[in-house]
Design a protein around this nucleic acid. Structure first.
Length: 695
DNA sequence: GCAAGGTC
């Protein structure tokens, strides 16, 4: 460092991202000097008796790969960690960053891994320390924190640990290796099956997350196609009592036969019923549990309609401003070490929370916690830091408010609800029920009422033996609902429920399924190829497309984290299963190749056929590539018989059949993907609505 | 051409 030649014998602190580096620098000292090298900020700090140099990574700087040129070779079992710029052309900026860290390491005499305290963060820091800093990890220190508040960061650096995240590192490395072995080898073998076939080729892939996700779509499609609609009937009665009218429902929720439903109408209409039983149940509703990532995402979706990834994004911004704790966690428990009173008192400085916090502060604070736990992080809670909240944007304000009110609610009393069920007897043969509900004590709902409606259903005060008149009976035919296809949102939710992928990768992985032509459409349908890949893989190696593999891996990783299991055992199992699956597949390579090739052909055809010609109403519209001019357009298969239909297409980008037609002119709609932009296009350029519906 | 996971 030419700017600071005298700076030697310092503690080098490795952070995961630039924002965290900035926060840590601010927490560690007032005397901060910032130098920027190739766009990377480095902080130099002198404390009373200690010198720090703080730099940051960009997430992973190293990844798994090998230097073998021939990518058709499988199995690949010899892998190594390489700088990401050696693996991915788009990562050329990683080179500079590694070089800078290498340089900084030379004059350091102590090293701290200050990446996020979780599996991936520990792995990021571990790799940088061993490869860029060239130090033995056992001689380095680990900062452990789950919020970026000054207090916690100061505490973390006063209490640096040695060898404390060994389990996390081991689990991280195992995760990388397992995913690589399964993913690369099975993807390669799928593709190699096509090499035997003339005109074979095309990219195929599968993986620990991709496979099960595609299977959800295929399974759902099979369910939809085999669904038989069954009707059922429901009966409601308009009941008159004491000059008021109220609805009662028949005691059987679903009446399976129409005849039975009509008989109920006939035998009850204009009859008098007797109140036979009044049941009053008191229900205590416990406060909600503290937020973990999934709970927060669900709640933010329910209330604000924020997508799961948007919620996490915003939560991350709040975390980086030290307003809330680390938002990627499974835990529904508060940390034992924090001072609830202190946080509550700080929050009471905000006008909106003044009243609520004062009520809570007048009593002993006992939180209602959930069952789920996380070894690395507590639940998501407000840190009590309130600096800068007036500068938050609307979305950030909304999410912060939700997190604060949830935090308040968990310290409040149970709510008490009274449920009334009135049973009405008609001639000892038919029964009707009326349900009422009211809250006699709101408890925590008072603190969370902005987000939870205490809905009451008022009913007259019945007494046993009272007579009521069933004025009219309504019988309604209903149908069992066909299960819906997934859309991107519901598929993301499903992946999250099943713990597949992470917030950062889920959407990308769904995109990959589209890119591979495994699925099409906004309401997601598998293509013939998608069906066949699942069929093939489940025939020869069912495990890769089963969520069980992920479940099992999760359990093993947790055990490795707690150092109850060794990576070697997990890896040995993985090698064995990968080896077995590869053998089973390669024994049938030719057969698989034909099946997949055939499915690809059908998929290409499906994708090119856009539906019935709106002009001659006989032929089919197809996408045609003119070999001479290399241009593409839509024509009609009835062209030779005289149909002159023709429509232009954009010449750039990937065109996908959506299966839909324009609601205005009835012509097909195609999806055009050009780089990152994606739009739906009605192919009729004279269509009255001629607007590109940008998504 | 291949996985999934970080970060921008």
């Amino acid at each position: 460092m030419s700017e600071k030649p005298d700076f030697k014998n310092y503690t080098l602190v490795i952070c995961e991202k630039s924002d965290a580096a900035k926060r840590i620098a601010e927490a560690l000292g007032d005397n901060v000097k910032t130098i920027e090298k190739k766009g990377i900020k480095i902080y130099f700090i002198t404390n009373a008796n200690k010198k720090y140099v703080i730099c940051s990574a960009l997430g992973h700087l190293y990844g798994l790969g090998n230097y073998r040129k021939d990518r058709k070779v499988y199995p690949v079992f010899d892998l190594m960690w390489l700088p990401l710029n050696h693996i991915d052309k788009n990562k050329s900026n990683v080179h500079d960053r590694i070089k800078i860290i290498e340089e900084l390491a030379k004059n350091a005499n102590e090293f701290v891994n200050a990446c996020d305290y979780d599996v991936e963060g520990s792995t990021i820091g571990f790799n940088i320390l061993r490869y860029a800093c060239k130090v033995n990890y056992s001689n380095t220190l680990r900062a452990k924190f789950s919020t970026l508040t000054k207090d916690e960061l100061k505490y973390a650096f006063k209490n640096l640990g040695n060898q404390i995240d060994k389990g996390l590192v081991k689990a991280g490395i195992t995760r990388h290796v397992v995913d690589y072995l399964w993913g690369i080898n099975l993807s390669r073998i799928l593709m190699s099956s096509l090499q035997h076939i003339p005109y074979g080729g095309g990219v195929l892939s599968t993986g620990r997350v991709q496979g099960p996700t595609l299977k959800f779509i295929v399974d759902r499609e099979i369910e939809i196609r085999s669904f038989v609609t069954k009707p059922y009937w429901v009966a409601n009665a308009l009941v008159e009592y004491d000059e008021t009218e109220i609805y009662a429902s028949y005691f059987k929720d679903k009446i399976m036969k129409k005849r039975e439903a009509l008989k109920i109408k006939e035998e009850n209409e204009r009859e008098t019923g007797i109140v036979k039983e009044i049941r009053r149940i008191k229900v205590e509703l416990k406060p909600p549990t503290p937020f973990n990532t999934g709970d927060l995402q669900k709640e933010a979706y329910r209330i604000f309609k924020f997508s799961p990834s948007l919620t996490l994004n915003i939560a991350e911004q709040l975390y980086l401003q030290a307003l809330i704790s680390y938002p990627r966690t499974n835990s529904q428990k508060l940390p034992k070490t924090i001072d609830y009173y202190k946080i509550m008192r700080r929050l009471s400085e905000i006008n909106e929370y003044k009243e609520e916090t004062e009520i809570l502060l007048s009593k002993k604070l006992v939180p209602h916690e959930g069952e789920k736990d996380d070894p690395a992080h507590p639940c998501i809670y407000p840190t009590g830091e309130i600096e800068g909240i007036e500068k938050l944007n609307e979305r950030q304000k909304k999410l912060f408010d939700l997190i604060v009110r949830r935090f308040l609610a968990i310290f409040a009393e149970n709510a008490i609800m009274e449920r009334d069920q009135i049973l009405i007897d008609v001639k000892g043969k038919h029964y009707w029920k009326i349900n009422g509900r009211r809250y006699i004590h709101l408890g925590w709902i008072n603190f969370y009422k902005k987000y939870f409606e205490a809905e009451e259903v008022e009913i007259p005060l019945f007494k046993e033996g009272d007579k009521v008149l069933l004025k009219t009976i309504n019988v309604e035919e209903k149908f069992e609902k066909r299960p819906p296809r997934f859309n991107k949102g519901s598929l993301l939710e499903k992946m999250e429920e099943e713990n597949l992928g992470t917030k950062a990768t889920r959407a990308e992985i769904i995109d990959t399924l589209y890119k591979r032509k495994y699925v099409v459409g906004e309401s997601i349908m598998p293509t013939e190829l998608g069906f066949q890949v699942i069929e093939t893989l489940s025939k020869y190696s069912g495990r890769i497309i089963s969520v069980d593999l992920t479940r099992e891996m999760e359990k093993s990783l947790e055990k490795i984290e707690l150092e109850q299991e060794e990576p070697e055992d997990v890896l040995e199992k993985t090698f064995y299963f990968a080896w077995q699956a590869i053998n089973d597949l390669s024994d049938n390579l030719e057969k698989i190749g034909f099946e997949l090739k055939n499915a690809m052909r059908i998929t290409t055809l499906e994708n090119k056929t856009l539906g019935l010609c709106p002009m001659c109403k006989e032929g089919l519209l197809v996408i045609i590539n003119n070999k001479k001019t290399k241009k593409r357009f839509v024509g009609c298969t009835n062209y030779k018989k005289g149909c002159s239909f023709v429509a232009p297409l954009p010449q750039k980008g990937i065109i996908q059949n959506t299966g839909r037609t324009c609601s205005t002119c009835g012509w097909p709609i195609v999806q055009v993907r050009n780089g990152k932009s994606l739009w739906n296009l009605c192919i009729n350029f004279k269509c009255p609505t001629k607007v590109k519906n940008k998504k």
